[in-house]
Design a protein around this nucleic acid. Structure first.
Length: 843
DNA sequence: AGTGTAGGTCTTGAT
DNA sequence: GACCTACACT
C-alpha cells in the first residue's frame, strides 16, 4: 500500500490552464494535496468522488485527461489501491501513452507498476494470453490484422465455392467485425443477419472462420475482447479473480465504446459476489445494444468504482461500431451513478465556442452540455466561399503565409478535411509554395509491405502454425515457389491437418515437386529451423537482422531501383531498432500487432494536414476547415446509409472540428469540386446555415488581388458571395434562427426547420440558375421525420438524349448521355463535360 | 513467372 | 483522375 506520507512525491503538474474556480475553491485546494491545486470545482469533484459509478461528461477542452490522471494519483495517494489494482482503459495507444506520460510527471516511477493501463485490446489480449487454453489457443497466439483476416476469409470462400466477386471477402470481414463488435459469437448472430451474406452462408462462414483461427493459433482484434467475455462467462471463478483485482476502473472516451467493450466493462465492474449471480444475469447479449443492456441491467450485482469519461458530442465513430447509447444510458446501467459535467472550456475563445455550441445544439440525441469560457470573445469564425477547390487551397495557402508573417508557428496551424482525398490539393499547393507540412494519419507504418513481410518472417519463427505469415513470405524474395507450389502445400496440409510449414518439411522429402522448387523449399525450411534454434541464444534484435539478411529480403530491396526502395530499407532498420524496447520476440510481436506507431519524430515547424476524425483530441491556434459542402460534409454516403443518425454524427464531426481551434477557426466552401474525376457544382453545407450569425463573419477570401490572376470567374464568384452573404441577412434566415432558438428547430405544420423558408426567400432574389436549383433540390421528398436529409442522387433525370441545354458556366450544348442525374453534355464551346442535371436548363 | 491491361472503386479508420 | 485488383498474355 502506498500511503503518501511524503507529499513531495506527488507534485502538481504545471498546466497552462488558468487558475479557475474562485476564492473558495482555491482556499480548499490549498488545504488538499498539492496535485489537486488548480482544479476547478467540477474537476475536483470528478477526481475525489472515488466510490460508486461516476460519469464525467467532459466537453471539448475541459481538462478530461487531467481529471483522469489526477484521479489515479488521488486513488494511489489515498492508499485506496495499489497501481496493479487499477484498470484504466483507453482506445488508442496514443491516449494510453499520453496518460502514462502525464502520470509519470505526477508520480515519478510508480507508473511502471501500472500493468493494467492500456487499450481495450492490449488489456484484453493480455488477459487472453493468461487463459489462452480456454479459448483453444496457445499463449503465443498471433494477432491477425485486417489484411490477414481478409486473406483467410478469401480462402474460406474459395473452399465453399462462393464467387468472390459477388460476395467479397472484405464485406464478410466487415460483417464479422460488426458481429464481434456487438459481442456476438457465431451461434448468437441473428439468423436474418447471418443470411445476408452469400445466400445464407454468412453464419456458417463465421463459424468456420473461428475454427480456422484456432487451428492457426491466431486471434483477430475482435477476439481479444470477445474471448475474454466468453471466458468470464464460462468461468465465474476467473471472472471473480479479476473483479477482485480491479478495485478501480477508469474508462476514457466512453462514448466510443461498442457493445463488446461495454459487456466486458460490465462484467469486470460488478462487485465480486461469491454467489456468482453474475454469469446467470449476463447471458446472451442480444443483437441490440439496448436489449443487451437490459439483460445485464441493474439487477443483481452492485457496480463498483467505475469512472467513465466521455463526451457524447464527440462521438464520431458510429460507423465502426461505437454505440453513443452506451453513454446516453449510463445512469440506467449503473444505478446511483453520479454524473459530473465539465463545461468550462480552457481552450477556445468565446466566438469559437459559441459557434460550435450553436451547431451541435441542432442535434437531438444528446445529454446536453453548455460549454463556457472565461476567455474573451476573440475573432469571429470566418466563412469563406471560393469558386472551386483549387482556389480554396490557394486562399488557405495565402492565409497561412500571412499568419506565418505575423510570426506565428506553423505547428499551430491545422487543416482539417472530411475526406482524405481533399488533402492532395493542399499538398500540391504547399509544395509549390515551399510551405512545410505534415500529413497526420497517412499510411501506417505497420501496414507497409516491407514491414508486414519482415513481421511475417518473425511470426513464422515464433509460431510455426502461422500459415498466413508463411504464405506471405514463402516466395518473397522470389524463390521460384509460385502458386502451384503453394497450392500443393495447401493440399498436403489439409489432408494431414498440419500447418503449411510442416507440410513443406514433409513435401521436400518426397519427389512431388520439381527439383528446382524442391531445392528452394528445402532451403527455406532449413533456414527457419536454424533461426528458431538461434532464437535461444541470440538477442531478438540481432536475430531479426540475421533473418532479414540471410533470407535475402534486405538484398531484394537493395537491388530494387524504384524510388521508394531506400525508404523501405530505412523502415526495416527502424523496425529492428524499435525491437530494442522489448524483452523478447514474443513481446515485440504482441506489441506490434496491437500498435500502429509510426512517428517519424521530425518535430520541425510544419502545418498539419489531417482528417477531422484524426484531429479529435488535438488543438491548434489556427484551424482551417475546408470543404463545407453538401455531399462532402455532411457526407452524402453517411446520410444515405445512416439517415438522421448519420447527419447527427456528421454534425458532431463539425463540432469536433471547430472546437480544435484555440483562437481562429476558418471555414471554407467551394462552388465547384472535382468528385471522382469529374467537376461538379456543389451547394454550401447546411451546417453553415446552422452557425450563429452573431459569431460568424462572411469574408471574401483574403488577399483579394490574387483572384485577378485567375481571370474569367470573377463575376460569378462575386455573385456567389453576394448570394451567400445574403442568406445571413434575409428575413427568412433570421426567422429561422429565431424559430430554432425557441423551439429546437422543429416547427409544426410539416415545415422542415428553417431551410425551406430560407431557400424560398433566397432563390427568387437570385438570378443565378445554380441557386434556383439550390432551392428546388432542397424541396420535395427530402425529409425524414419532418427534417431535411439531403438527397442528390437517384432521381431520374428530366432530360432526354439530344436535348438542347444551357449551363451557366459552359454555355449551350447537347445531351449525349444520361446516367441517373448525371448528364454528359457536348458543349458548343467547352467540349464534352459531365454535369449534374440540376445545373443545366433546357435551352 | 512475371508483366501488361481492363475493370471497378473511390469516407472516416483504432485495435 | 488515380489507384488497386484480377485476369490474360507472353
Amino acid at each position: 500500500m502506498i500511503r503518501m506520507t511524503e507529499p513531495s512525491k506527488i507534485t502538481s503538474v504545471p498546466d497552462h490552464q488558468p487558475a479557475a474556480g474562485g476564492i473558495a475553491a482555491r482556499a480548499r485546494a490549498s488545504v488538499g494535496p498539492k496535485y489537486l491545486t488548480g482544479l476547478n470545482p467540477e474537476q475536483r469533484e470528478a477526481v475525489e468522488t472515488l466510490d460508486g459509478p461516476v460519469l464525467v461528461l467532459a466537453g471539448a477542452g475541459t481538462g478530461k485527461t487531467r481529471v483522469l490522471t489526477t484521479r489515479i494519483a488521488h486513488i494511489l495517494s489515498q492508499g485506496r489501491a495499489r497501481p496493479a489494482e487499477i484498470l484504466s482503459v483507453t482506445f488508442t495507444n496514443k491516449a494510453a501513452r499520453e496518460m502514462k506520460h502525464r502520470l509519470g510527471q505526477m508520480l515519478g516511477h510508480a507508473v511502471e507498476g501500472m500493468p493494467w493501463l492500456g487499450t481495450f485490446h492490449s488489456i484484453g489480449g493480455r488477459i487472453l494470453r493468461f487463459h489462452a487454453e480456454l479459448a483453444q489457443l496457445k499463449s503465443n497466439f498471433t494477432v491477425l490484422d485486417v489484411d490477414d483476416q481478409v486473406r483467410l476469409l478469401k480462402q474460406l470462400l474459395q473452399a465453399e465455392n462462393i464467387d468472390d466477386k459477388r460476395w467479397p471477402a472484405r464485406m464478410l470481414a466487415g460483417l464479422i467485425d460488426g458481429w464481434k463488435n456487438r459481442g456476438l459469437m457465431p451461434s448468437q448472430v441473428p439468423a436474418g443477419e447471418a443470411a445476408v451474406f452469400a445466400n445464407g452462408k454468412g453464419g456458417k462462414l463465421y463459424a468456420s472462420y473461428q475454427e480456422r483461427l484456432k487451428i492457426l493459433n491466431a486471434a483477430d482484434f475482435g477476439d481479444l475482447l470477445l474471448e475474454n467475455i466468453r471466458i468470464f462467462r464460462e468461468h465465474p471463478d476467473i471472472l471473480r479473480q479479476y473483479q477482485q483485482r480491479f478495485k478501480f476502473i477508469l474508462v476514457d472516451e466512453y462514448q466510443d465504446t461498442n457493445v463488446a467493450q461495454y459487456l466486458w466493462l460490465r462484467l469486470l465492474s460488478q462487485a465480486p459476489s461469491p454467489a456468482a449471480a453474475a454469469p446467470g444475469a449476463i447471458d446472451d447479449p442480444s443483437s441490440d445494444a439496448a436489449a443487451a443492456a437490459q439483460a445485464l441491467a441493474p439487477a443483481a450485482a452492485r457496480p463498483k468504482n467505475i469512472c467513465c469519461v466521455g463526451d457524447d458530442d464527440q462521438s464520431i465513430y458510429g460507423w465502426r461500431g461505437a454505440e453513443v447509447d452506451n453513454i446516453l444510458r449510463f445512469d440506467h446501467d449503473f444505478p446511483g451513478a453520479k454524473v459530473i459535467r465539465l463545461e468550462r472550456n480552457y481552450r477556445s475563445t468565446g466566438h469559437i465556442l459559441a459557434a460550435a455550441s450553436h451547431l451541435i445544439a441542432h442535434n437531438e440525441g444528446r445529454l446536453g452540455k453548455t460549454l463556457r469560457t472565461e476567455d474573451h470573445d476573440g475573432e469571429k469564425v470566418t466563412v469563406t466561399g471560393s469558386w472551386d477547390s483549387e482556389e480554396e487551397a490557394r486562399g488557405i495557402g495565402e492565409e497561412i503565409e500571412q499568419i506565418q508573417r505575423k510570426g506565428e508557428k506553423l505547428n499551430e496551424i491545422a487543416i482539417l478535411v472530411r475526406a482524405s482525398y481533399q488533402m492532395r490539393e493542399f499538398e500540391d499547393r504547399f509544395v509549390t509554395l515551399g510551405l512545410p507540412y505534415r500529413v497526420i494519419g497517412g499510411p501506417r507504418f505497420y501496414e507497409r509491405a516491407e514491414i508486414r513481410d519482415a513481421l511475417a518472417y518473425l511470426r513464422v519463427i515464433n509460431s510455426p502454425a502461422d500459415d498466413l505469415a508463411f504464405e506471405r513470405i514463402v516466395n518473397v524474395p522470389k524463390r521460384g515457389l509460385g502458386d502451384a507450389t503453394v497450392q500443393m502445400l495447401h493440399d498436403h496440409a489439409r489432408k494431414r491437418r498440419i500447418p503449411l510449414f510442416e507440410a513443406a518439411r514433409a513435401v521436400v522429402e518426397t519427389d512431388e515437386l520439381k527439383p528446382k522448387a524442391r531445392g528452394s523449399l528445402r532451403e527455406v525450411v532449413a533456414q527457419f529451423d536454424r533461426w528458431r534454434a538461434q532464437r535461444e541464444v541470440t538477442a531478438h534484435t540481432d536475430l531479426a537482422q540475421i533473418v532479414l539478411d540471410e533470407s535475402g529480403y534486405t538484398e531484394m530491396w537493395q537491388k530494387d531501383r524504384s524510388a521508394d526502395a531506400a525508404g523501405r530499407l530505412e523502415n526495416l532498420k527502424e523496425l529492428v531498432r524499435s525491437m530494442e524496447e522489448f524483452e523478447n520476440l514474443q513481446g515485440f510481436l504482441e506489441h506490434i500487432s496491437l500498435v500502429m506507431d509510426r512517428d517519424g519524430g521530425a518535430e520541425d515547424d510544419a502545418v498539419s494536414l489531417m482528417t477531422l476524425h484524426s484531429a479529435k483530441g488535438l488543438e491548434f491556434d489556427n484551424v482551417f476547415l475546408p470543404g463545407w459542402e453538401e455531399g462532402l460534409f455532411p457526407s452524402q454516403r453517411t446520410l444515405d446509409e445512416q439517415g438522421r443518425a448519420g447527419l447527427e454524427e456528421e454534425r458532431r464531426l463539425g463540432h469536433v472540428g471547430i472546437t480544435r481551434a484555440r483562437r481562429r477557426a476558418m471555414i471554407y466552401f467551394a462552388t465547384n469540386r472535382r468528385i471522382h474525376g469529374t467537376w461538379s457544382t456543389t451547394i454550401p453545407s447546411r451546417f453553415l446555415d446552422e452557425l450563429p450569425a452573431a459569431n460568424v463573419e462572411i469574408t471574401e477570401s483574403k488577399g483579394g488581388s490574387a483572384w485577378g490572376g485567375t481571370g474569367g470567374y470573377g463575376a460569378s464568384r462575386f455573385d456567389d458571395m453576394e448570394a451567400f452573404g445574403s442568406s445571413y441577412s434575409t428575413p427568412g434566415w433570421q426567422r429561422a434562427q429565431a424559430n430554432r432558438n425557441r423551439g429546437g428547430g422543429r416547427s409544426g405544420g410539416g415545415r422542415s426547420g428553417g431551410f425551406e423558408e430560407e431557400a424560398a426567400t433566397f432563390s427568387p432574389s437570385s438570378s443565378d440558375p445554380d441557386f434556383g436549383s439550390f432551392s428546388s433540390r432542397r424541396r420535395g421528398p427530402l425529409t425524414i421525420e419532418g427534417e431535411l436529409v439531403a438527397k442528390s442522387t437517384g432521381t431520374t433525370s428530366e432530360f432526354a438524349l439530344d436535348d438542347r441545354v444551357f449551363h451557366q458556366k459552359f454555355g449551350y450544348g447537347r445531351v449525349t448521355k444520361i446516367d441517373g442525374n448525371k448528364l454528359t453534355i457536348a458543349f458548343d464551346k467547352a467540349g464534352e463535360k459531365k454535369v449534374v442535371d440540376s445545373f443545366v436548363q433546357r435551352a
